[in-house]
Amino acid sequence: MAILHAAKRHPRLLISLSVVALATAGGLFWQAQHRNAPDPALRANTLTELRVMADSGRDDDALAELQRLADKGTPDAQRTLGQVLLARGDSEHALTGVRWLQQAGQAGDADAYAALGKAWLLGSPGLAINYPQAHTALQAAAKTGHTGAAYYLGIQLKNGYGIPADAKAAAHWFEVAARNDEPAALFMLANAYRYGDGVANDDAKALALYRKSADLEYPPAIQAMAMAYQHGEMGLKRDPANYKQELAEAAHALKHPAQQP
């Protein structure tokens, strides 16, 4: 019903939604039996599009469809629904969202634990900060190499939020996230090398990491590069032309900054 309703107004989703519906209705058996088993990437992309429609588009049909898919018990749909509900901001939606995320996380969905850990670490109008729960969730996801979870675990360890501060462990987790070119993690790892925070001071490494983060349009990193050219820091020569260029890039990137994980 919801599929048809949404599809009437958005024809392209009809096809993808039916694939998702088939996949969830038939479950693994269906997938194993059919040569044309639905592509997991297609399914992930369809869930992402439903999330955008339900989130920014406030589309009730998309939300209902996510709810229906989550009810079927697949962790990726449960996680997606949890994220949409959490983003609504109020405590009622947030609590339901947390329950879905927990359910998905328990079924082995690292993205769900990462989203939960971040939500508990940062808090929001609908959800109070809970450092111990954040730590457990972030650890569970970070262990699997999850980029966002590794970054936020690094943040929690760096400043000791609800746990003892551990600069060395923080740098390790920033490094895990930085390996996947996470701009914010590259920036934090650059700071660690520059200020000898949990790792030995190494300006050359710091500079290379700021550069990479800046190339990914992370405004604080572009600004760090601008200041470095302005003042001749981290082994750079003072260079007014490059300073001006980086400053212009920082101004520009602020209109579309690299997103936090």
């Binding site: 670490l121 940062l122 943040i155 760096k158 400043n159 939020y161 914010a184 920036f187 934090m188 700071n191 520059r194 200020y195 925070d197 405004p219 604080p220 600004q223 760090a224 602020l254 900054p257 936090q260």
Partner: peptide, 17 residues
């Protein structure tokens, strides 16, 4: 500003969170 709040200058406790 965004630079400081996001960890610029590595000030303790200022890490975007």
């Amino acid at each position: 500003n965004n630079y400081r709040a996001s960890g610029g200058g590595n000030f303790p406790g200022l890490d975007g969170s």
